[in-house]
Design a protein around this nucleic acid. Structure first.
Length: 739
DNA sequence: AGCACGCCGACT
DNA sequence: GTCGGCGTGCTC
């Protein structure tokens, strides 16, 4: 199209898998800014878009007009827009979807940004006689607070009064002692100066103090680098975090804290609230209602929230005065988003901190090889905490050769004796088994039939408590009948064990001791995890059985024995990351033991007591073992040395999926680049999942630039292949999961 | 992703 | 003759 009639236009991103932006005409009387949302027409429907660029010369002669400008000021500020742009191109994901991903659901749907509500005392409230609210202490507290602060917002009040604060507010409004004023967030002045104080729980140890001094020094270097804090389990990383954060808050800046998705939010939140009693602290996690999410988003954006604690997606929270970013358990796999927009939250955070010029601290007892490699390359500072405060020492891990021991449901007789002993000493015991359900195999003794998922072609796990077999890959479930579906035999039996079966066996062995199972099945009801944790925290002798839910962050002082039941399959996994993950998991679980006065003991059952990785982990510790694994990766140029991307294709029809990936594979092979290596196309390790046939193609390169360039070719080839029969494809940059 | 358009088989 | 299946391509 010609450029003879250039049009003043804006460029808009929409929430569609579309690798381009659309131009719209803009009325002269509206003032579009990048980052503002608009309503536009697309085809015959009206959708929400986000302005990316203004004053563009469109190559289209005629443009549809913008229907409405939703925001006067941007919902995505310039800095955040830059980060999102960057991640869109780094992860080869359409910009529109990336931008919308960074907004709370309400705003994605086009709802206007809510007004900020400010609670003020009315004149009646200001003049209220002293004892009038004597029988309503909460109302009195709220009224006093609002008067003292000269206007409080929802975040202040929630913090002051807890989750039911709206009820208190409603009563005071009914009595006309307090009124709500609605303010346009754009017209909000700088956040009300708030009192800052710290409530230190106890002194830092000498080692923690030294660490803090080092961090402060690094934060003040002209060229900021991320800091990796490698502190053994129980070394008090949280105490260091709190001390690091304090001066940032004191300077009236905000702190973003990212944590894994394992329900640790409440513990950390209360720890932070206790330490910073006058700061506004809020969480962002998957369990939040849409409205609540928007409230926290707005609170962070307007500066009324000082600390945002959140999981992966919180990395995109807007901040008025960003002061620093903290990532706890930085090695955790849940920082990688596994569907839709496939990004690494930890890497995004590092990029964001860099762009903002603010410090970032990564903490872990078992740092990822990626981070350790960055230390080696001197891109990160490295600090260590090697000791547990007080008398407590890290537990020793003992390997137990189970080949010669009698087993009951996978628990050795020696382990049973140890459990008995620790319980008799009034202590608590924890067993770790990363497999939920009763048994991974349900089979017929007569004909060899076993339960297989009809959607995935993989074995289904038997869940005795529900009387079902469940596919752990797609969730498909079936009721279990008393006879074999193939031969009608009644000799159905199970093989192997999951947490349910362990629970049952322990209940019969230790009928007088409560057995607490913590896995996704036993904690799905809201509040049930809290109930169970409370029982453990009572300090009574109990046996805990859990999956990886139980591995991180928990502090059970009476826990002295940890048993790790089944690590053998991870030792021989095809996945080159299996050893790294196993080492992390073993140390994280082991770290739950001996956090109180009594020394902890950890027993690791294995049929491979000579395995070099296990021996190394036990005798040389994590840092050395990680270094060895890293050296192996160097030999093969696996990440974090080289870099990878995975193209995944799936379809309901095997042939269609196969045709697609073969065409792509052939076209890419024809490029014959020396800089990249192709592995595949091949069936995915999980070749069928949820009725869809799956193939993949792994692309490796030594240099990121080469990989990136090659992925452009991938994208352009894919766009030329005709996609029939609903073939779906994704590009996964820096994949962590090859399933 | 939606959605319309268009080209072929099978139905009142 | 037309209804509707899905393959194809576009959305400013």
């Amino acid at each position: 199209m010609s450029k003879e009639h250039p049009t003043k236009a804006v460029r808009v991103a929409i929430q569609r898998p579309l690798y381009k932006l659309l131009d719209y005409a803009c009325d002269v009387d509206i003032q579009p800014k990048p980052g503002c949302r608009v309503k536009v027409s697309l085809g015959n429907s009206v959708i929400t878009g986000i302005i990316v660029e203004t004053d563009v010369e469109s190559e289209f002669a005629t443009l549809k007009p913008i229907i409405e400008l939703i925001d006067e000021s941007p919902v995505i500020d310039e800095k955040l827009m830059g980060l999102l742009h960057w991640s869109s191109s780094y992860y080869f994901h359409p910009l529109g979807e990336v931008l919308f991903h960074a907004l709370p659901v309400d705003l994605r749907k086009g709802k206007s940004v809510p007004k900020v509500e400010i609670w003020n005392a009315t004149s009646a409230g200001l003049e209220l006689p002293k004892d009038e609210l004597k029988r309503a202490p909460k109302q009195q507290a709220m009224l006093d607070y609002v008067i003292q602060k000269d206007g409080a917002d929802a975040n202040n009040l929630k913090q002051l009064l807890g989750d039911n604060w709206r009820n208190t507010s409603r009563e005071l409004i009914k009595k006309e002692l307090i009124a709500i004023e609605e303010i346009d967030p754009q017209k909000l002045t700088a956040p009300a100066t708030h009192v800052f104080s710290v409530n230190p729980p106890h002194q830092l140890t000498e080692e923690q103090q030294q660490c803090l001094t080092d961090i402060d020094a690094h934060f003040n270097e002209p060229k900021l680098r991320p800091i990796l804090l490698h502190g053994i389990t129980g070394s008090g990383k949280t105490e260091v975090y709190l001390s690091v954060i304090a001066p940032i808050l004191k300077a009236k800046k905000q702190v973003l804290v990212l944590i894994p998705e394992i329900g640790l939010t409440p513990q950390l939140l209360s720890r932070f609230r206790q330490y910073f009693p006058d700061s506004n602290i809020d969480c962002l996690h998957s369990g939040l209602a849409d409205g609540e999410r928007t409230r926290v988003w707005l609170g962070a954006k307007t500066g009324s929230i000082d600390i945002v604690i959140g999981t992966r997606s919180a990395v995109f929270t807007p901040l008025l005065n960003p002061g620093m970013i903290l990532i706890d358990e930085e090695h955790d796999a849940s920082f990688k988003q596994q569907e839709g927009f496939l990004y690494q939250g930890r890497d995004m955070a590092i990029k964001r901190a860099h762009d903002l010029g603010i410090p970032i601290l990564l903490g872990s007892a078992t740092p990822s090889l990626e981070s350790l490699y960055n230390v080696e390359k001197e891109r990160y500072h490295y600090l260590r905490l090697n000791n547990r405060p007080g008398a407590s020492n890290p537990p020793d891990i003992a390997l137990q050769d189970i080949r010669t021991l009698p087993l009951d449901a996978g628990i050795s007789s020696l382990m049973m004796t140890d459990i008995r002993q620790h319980l008799d000493n009034n202590n608590q015991v924890m067993l770790f088994l990363n497999r939920r359900g009763f048994a991974p195999v349900l089979m017929c003794q007569d004909c060899g039939w076993h339960a297989v998922c009809s959607h995935c072609d993989m074995g289904m796990t038997y869940h005795a408590s529900m009387g079902k077999v469940i596919c752990h890959h797609c969730g498909y479930e079936e009721r279990v009948k008393s006879t074999c579906p193939d031969c009608n035999s009644t000799k159905l039996t199970t093989q192997g064990q999951g947490t349910e079966r362990i629970e049952e066996v322990l209940n019969t062995h230790f009928p007088e001791t409560p057995v607490i199972r913590i896995d996704r099945d036993s904690t799905s009801r809201k509040g049930s995890l809290e109930e169970k944790l409370e029982l453990v925290n009572s300090g009574e002798p109990v046996i805990l059985i859990g999956t990886q839910m139980l591995t991180k962050g928990h502090d059970f002082p009476k826990l002295t024995l940890v048993g790790i039941l089944d690590v053998d399959q991870a030792l021989f996994s095809m996945d080159y990351r299996a050893h790294e993950r196993l080492a992390q998991q073993v140390l994280q679980v082991a770290g739950r033991a001996g956090r109180g006065a009594a020394k902890g003991k950890v027993i690791l059952q294995t049929s491979q007591p000579q395995h070099p990785m296990l021996l190394s982990l036990l005798s040389q510790g994590y840092a050395n073992t990680a270094q060895q694994i890293l050296n192996e990766r160097k030999l093969w140029n696996y990440p974090p040395l080289g870099c990878q991307a995975l193209v995944r294709v799936n379809a309901l029809d095997l042939q269609l999926a196969h045709n697609f990936i073969s065409t792509l594979g052939a076209d890419l092979a024809a490029i014959n680049s020396e800089k990249v290596m192709l592995l595949g196309p091949m069936p995915s390790p999980l070749a069928r999942r949820a009725k869809r046939y799956r193939f993949q193609l792994l692309i490796s390169a030594e240099k990121r630039g080469d990989l990136h360039g090659f992925l452009h070719s991938v994208l352009s080839i894919i766009s030329k292949i005709r996609k029939t029969g609903g073939v779906r494809w994704v590009i996964d940059v820096d994949p962590v999961d090859f399933l």
